[in-house]
Computed example of a mutant assay.
Amino acid sequence: MSEKLQKVLARSGQGSRRELELMIQNGRVSIDGKTAKLGDRLEDGHDSIVRIDGHKINLVAPSEEVCRVLAYNKPEGELCTRHDPDGRRTVFDRLPRLESGRWVSVGRLDANTSGLLLFTTDGELANRLMHPSHRVEREYMVRVFGDVNEQMIKNLVNGVELEDGMARFEDVVYAGGEGMNHTFYVMLTEGRNREVRRLWDSQGVTVSRLKRVRYGDIFLTKDIPRGGWMELELKEVNYLREMVELKPEENTMLTVEGQKRKKGVRQIRRAVRRHEERINDDSPRGRRGRQDKRRSSSRNKDAEATSQGRRKPSGNAANRRNPLKNKPAKPRTRK
């Protein structure tokens, strides 16, 4: 039995099938020293040597693959690309390293868009989740600037002709606003380039903030701070696989302790902050300067509290916090 070359490479974590088809078309893939072409297949039990851009690829057999999925809270300003020639931050900079294969992003978000972005080691899963035929729901919180009336909402739900064809929101729910600023939750079942922004632009209003809050039934909660990630449990991975008609995964890379909600919010925040400090600090002087600044800030706060007659809390009182402060937001549901 044989499999298409792009399917084998996707399973080995080299990208989605769509990305790999482009690599093959551009002559970047070879089999046993010969440039591959679309339609090439690999037989089961083969010993062929496959290379991408001259680098040998460790091919993964179906029985060896463990499907992993990460939920990442993308901040604004990060790019959905592996390498940026200008040295700007990318969404792959903060992800955990893999011993083999690589993380494949499930779709993209614009640099100015924040929120939930899924990553997986299974290129076939990524390809199916992105494909419009599976109609996987994507929900966004969007803030727009301008007058919005009922006819505009009807237009957006019924469909608008864009430069690349008809597009529409499956659902639009008003979430409040003041003056010319209005917030909505909108839902799509496809992921065309800048589709949410272009739909609102067609009605003469401008998107001032855009954040993805849901992909399928995977919600972005307060458990994941900006720039942080969390690995999905096996039942969540299999929910995604079942949704796109893939066989369930039997194994997970999470430990037993990891399945008890993995890392705490504070621990993730500290990891994100350390990552940012490593990027910003190019020299020991930068680290010393930051430490001195923290000490000075701490002393100033203590002095200010003393002058105002407030005593600095100590012991258990210093660690006491509002139990509702970091409570995850309740997922938004529709009747």
Rank of each mutant, 00 (worst) to 15 (best):
R82W: 11
G27N: 07
R94Q: 12
D122K: 03
K74F: 06
E245M: 07
A126V: 01
L117Y: 08
W229A: 00
E170C: 07
G159V: 00
S297K: 15
D171V: 03
E276G: 10
E124I: 12
P313C: 10
I218G: 06
G228V: 00
A318S: 07
V213H: 10
V148P: 02
K247R: 14
L116F: 04
S283Y: 08
Q203S: 06
Q259I: 02
N127K: 10
I218N: 04
G101A: 02
V272Y: 03
D93G: 07
R128H: 03
N127I: 03
R143V: 08
P313H: 05
G179A: 06
R89N: 05
D110K: 04
Q14W: 14
Q291M: 15
Y72P: 00
G204A: 06
G77M: 10
R28A: 14
E249D: 03
E78P: 02
D171I: 08
V157I: 06
V272M: 00
K4G: 03
E257N: 07
A271S: 09
A71Y: 10
Y72K: 07
N127V: 04
G289H: 12
Q308Y: 12
D47E: 15
R310T: 04
D47P: 01
W103Q: 06
R266Q: 10
G289I: 13
R266W: 10
V50Y: 01
T306I: 15
R214Y: 05
K312I: 15
L254P: 07
D47S: 14
S314W: 02
K4V: 00
M130Q: 12
L70I: 09
S30N: 14
R278I: 08
K301I: 11
S100M: 08
N181G: 05
E124T: 12
M23I: 04
D44H: 08
I268T: 13
F145V: 10
L188R: 07
F145M: 13
M130S: 04
E195G: 02
E250D: 02
K301F: 10
T183F: 06
R261K: 10
L232Q: 06
G289A: 15
D53L: 10
V186W: 01
Q151R: 13
R290I: 05
M166C: 02
N316R: 15
V244D: 09
R135L: 10
G123N: 11
R209Q: 12
L156S: 03
V207D: 08
P75D: 05
G216T: 07
F145A: 02
R128N: 08
L38R: 12
K56F: 02
L129E: 07
D40E: 02
E78M: 14
R89P: 11
E65V: 12
M253Y: 05
T113C: 09
